[in-house]
């Protein structure tokens, strides 16, 4: 069965569930058994479908147009979110959303890539590919959180930083480097959640954090499978092989120690049930922030530095040399 067919099936069944529920609440309690049956059918069908996904399948899911984006999570997780615009120098980049919202009654800085929902919004948000102004805005808001002492939560979902003329003229490289640096030394607890695509440096710029989580079907890599296939295989058709070799799934990255945990997507894929996905993300954030905010900030910072310092795998040849 194809994903499209499954989605149609899910829509139909959801409609059926909705109708049954209506009847149930209207007092027709005899539909309860059927309701249970249909819900179970939905769960097994969907679970079956998403059972054996290849890395390339996950790339498709991570990029799925209906997949919940940053704004969907903000709406469902934070209260009174106040968006803050602009980098204070030359522009506002709609591909990054930043602001402050309440999380269980306490303020949290929330920053994330936003791809946009419909065609018009996608154009406006540049398909989630930030310009330097976006990273500068993100950094400004992070420093605000640092100054007024509240945690930072980021949502990562970008194909990569935008490759454009103005982006280069305004120093994309420096904007990303500074953002990485700021996050490495930010003196408040930070949590990143990769919710869709983690595309290279453009993603990393918002993903240097005390705890980094990935949704079950999100991906995170140094280059897109397409780019990798074109360069290393010299063949656009090698995307599936490239996706495999890049080790870009949440499971791979957890094993490599690059991320700290995987957030399950109920019903196998986030867009099948965005609401319950947001609920799981919220639960995870609450648990993590509760733990991190209890810690002493200097020990947290030390741990963060230690974590990123130990990234990488190499050999150390035996040497008698001492550097003085």
């Amino acid at each position: 069965m194809e994903l499209k067919k499954l989605e149609k099936f899910v829509d139909e069944i959801k409609e059926k569930i909705r109708r049954l529920k209506e009847q149930y609440y209207a007092g027709k309690t005899e539909v309860e058994s059927e309701l249970r049956k249909v819900q179970k059918e939905l769960k097994t069908k969907v679970k079956e479908f998403f059972k054996d996904l290849t890395p390339w399948d996950r790339v498709q899911l991570a990029r799925h147009p209906k997949r919940p984006h940053t704004k969907d999570y903000i709406e469902r997780i934070f209260n009174n979110f106040q968006e803050l615009h602009g980098d204070r120098f030359c522009g506002d980049d709609p591909s990054i959303v930043a602001g402050i919202g309440y999380f269980y009654g306490k303020p949290v800085a929330v920053i994330g890539h936003e791809k946009g929902r419909d065609t018009k919004e996608r154009m406006k948000r540049n398909f989630g590919m930030p310009n330097p102004e976006g990273y500068k805005k993100a950094n400004r808001v992070m420093k605000l959180a640092e100054k007024f002492r509240f945690p930072v939560v980021t949502f990562v979902d970008t194909p990569g930083a935008f490759p454009g003329i103005e982006a280069e003229e305004h120093n994309q490289s420096k904007a990303i480097a500074d953002s990485i640096y700021t996050m490495a030394y930010l003196k408040v607890p930070t949590v990143s959640v990769i919710i869709g695509e983690g595309g290279s440096g453009g993603a990393l710029a918002l993903a240097v954090a005390d705890r980094v989580f990935m949704l079950q079907n999100s991906v995170y890599s140094v280059i897109s499978p397409e780019g990798c296939a074109a360069i290393l295989w010299k063949d656009q058709k090698a995307v599936e092989k490239a996706a495999e070799a890049l080790k870009l799934t949440a499971q791979d990255l957890l094993q490599l120690g690059v991320i700290d945990g995987i957030i399950p997507e109920p019903y196998g894929a986030a867009h099948i049930d965005p609401l319950s996905t947001a609920r799981v993300v919220k639960y995870c954030l609450r648990k993590t922030l509760n733990e991190l905010t209890k810690r002493d900030i200097s020990s947290l910072l030390e741990e963060r530095i230690q974590k990123y310092s130990s990234m990488g795998v190499f050999e150390i040849a035996p040497t008698i040399e001492k550097y003085d």
Binding site: G201, L204, L256
Partner: peptide, 22 residues
């Protein structure tokens, strides 16, 4: 740029080198 053959580990070197400048 980054070394694709080390995939995500090469990406993480961006974080590692940047923080080292600190």
């Amino acid at each position: 740029g980054a070394r694709m053959q080390e995939s995500i580990l090469s990406l993480m070197q961006m974080a590692k080198t940047s923080l080292a400048v600190g």
